[in-house]
Simulated scan of single mutants.
Amino acid sequence: MSSPHDRDDRDDPEGGRRPGDDGWQEPSHLDDDDRRAGATAWTAPQAGPRPRTPGVVEQVFRDQGDTVGAQAWALHQGWTISDGTAPEDAVLAELVATAPVRATRDHRAAGVMRGRSGNLELVAFDVVYVDKRRLVPEWAVTAAPVLMPLPGLRLSPARFWRHGTGGLLHVPSGDPAVDARWVLLAAEDGPAVRRLVADPAVLGLLMNSDDGDEFWAAAGHLAAVRPDGHRPALVEHHARLLTAMVGALAGAV
Rank of each mutant, 00 (worst) to 15 (best):
V197Y: 04
D210L: 14
D33P: 06
D213E: 12
A103V: 10
L153Y: 05
G115N: 09
L122M: 08
P200K: 04
D131S: 12
R240C: 10
W139L: 06
F125I: 07
L206Y: 05
G15K: 11
V68S: 01
D63V: 08
R226V: 06
G167A: 12
L203G: 01
E214A: 14
L95C: 09
A41T: 11
L205Y: 13
T243F: 08
A39R: 06
L168R: 02
P151S: 03
K132M: 15
G69P: 00
E138A: 13
A186P: 02
T142W: 00
G164T: 12
R52S: 12
A252G: 08
Q25H: 15
G118Y: 10
A239W: 04
V112G: 02
T80Y: 09
W79M: 03
A44E: 12
V225E: 07
A99I: 10
G251T: 02
G164E: 08
A47W: 13
P45R: 11
G78A: 04
E214T: 13
P45G: 06
H170W: 15
E121T: 13
L135V: 12
A37Y: 06
D83R: 05
W161H: 09
E14K: 04
P172V: 06
L206Q: 05
S117C: 08
A217P: 10
N119A: 15
L185I: 02
A41H: 05
P54Q: 11
Q25R: 15
D210R: 13
R231L: 07
M1A: 09
P49E: 14
V57T: 07
M113C: 10
P149T: 11
Q71T: 09
D9S: 12
L184Q: 02
A219F: 10
A201Y: 05
D22W: 15
M148C: 04
A180C: 01
D83I: 04
W24Y: 13
M207S: 12
V246M: 03
W79N: 05
D106C: 01
